[in-house]
């Protein structure tokens, strides 16, 4: 099994000087699904943005991050962005085109691929057939989220990085999303407060607090560690209480 993602000493400061990420070290293996949990402001979103080199400051430093052995430096930027697909927290940020079709076709066009073949396939994959000419402003939140996912999948990423994928979804939308993500065989990194979703999808969990990784291990083990969870603004999910009574 190959190493999909290797983070080795990643640090990041905001422009005002506060440390957002502080010397992170971890690896993610191919086709692993890793949950990233932690309180608000822990640096989860910042970490995710680094994973495909969106924050320009990252590049100036020596590579502390590599994707399938490729270090994140200016020269590799395009190939790394191609391999890492990023699903943003607010679908309105990501669906910037006037129609679903154009939005899903955006990535393939940038990469020089043929959207005519790809777009129908990924729309079918996320269950949005018939939405091609719909305007995102007239779609439900769940539909928008799936359209975003289609736009990311259209770039054919090797690693899928998701920021709060279940936020603002109703129970059915959430259920459909979980089922959809489970069907995707690729490597996934999911940042979420929805710990039940993490339990269902992820085999391993990283706990991030104040820019540091405070725990890294199998999902059930970490989420059942009540003192650890409470110390970092989290709680043991109900789903584990029932299946693993202490």
């Amino acid at each position: 099994m190959r190493t999909a993602l290797d983070v080795n000493g990643l640090s990041y400061r905001y422009s005002d000087g506060t440390a957002a990420l502080d010397d992170l070290h971890f690896q993610v293996q191919e086709s692993e699904c890793v949950g990233l949990i932690g309180p608000n402001g822990a640096g989860k979103s910042t970490l995710l943005l680094h994973l495909n080199g969106v924050l320009p400051e990252t590049l100036a430093r020596t590579a502390t991050l590599s994707v399938f052995g490729e270090p994140l430096v200016e020269a590799n930027l395009r190939s790394i962005r191609r391999q890492v697909g990023l699903l943003f927290q607010d679908p309105d940020d990501q669906l910037f085109c006037p129609t679903v079709y154009e939005d899903v076709a955006f990535g393939p066009k940038q990469l020089g691929l043929d959207p005519a073949e790809i777009v129908p396939r990924v729309l079918a994959e996320v269950g949005l057939v018939g939405f091609e000419s719909r305007s995102p402003s007239r779609m439900s939140h769940g539909e928008k989220r799936r359209a975003c996912l289609a736009g990311v999948l259209a770039c054919d990423p090797a690693i899928l990085v998701l920021d709060e994928p279940s936020s603002d979804l109703d129970p059915r939308g959430r259920r459909e999303l979980i089922a959809l993500l489970r069907r995707l065989p690729i490597t996934k990194i999911i940042a979420s407060h929805d710990l039940e979703l993490v339990v269902e999808l992820c085999s391993r969990v990283l706990v991030l607090d104040r820019g540091k990784i405070v725990a890294d291990g199998p999902t059930t083990e970490i989420l059942n560690d009540e003192p650890l969870m409470l110390a970092h603004g989290l709680e043991r999910p109900h789903i584990l209480r029932h299946s693993h009574p202490h």
């Binding site: 943005l49 969106v54 962005r81 943003f88 910037f96 940038q110 990469l111 736009g151």
Partner: peptide, 16 residues
């Protein structure tokens, strides 16, 4: 703030 996030979203999908 929105424009900044849109730019990130464009970059992450291969925009030059």
């Amino acid at each position: 703030a929105r424009a900044e996030r849109i730019y990130s979203a464009m970059l992450s999908r291969g925009w030059r």
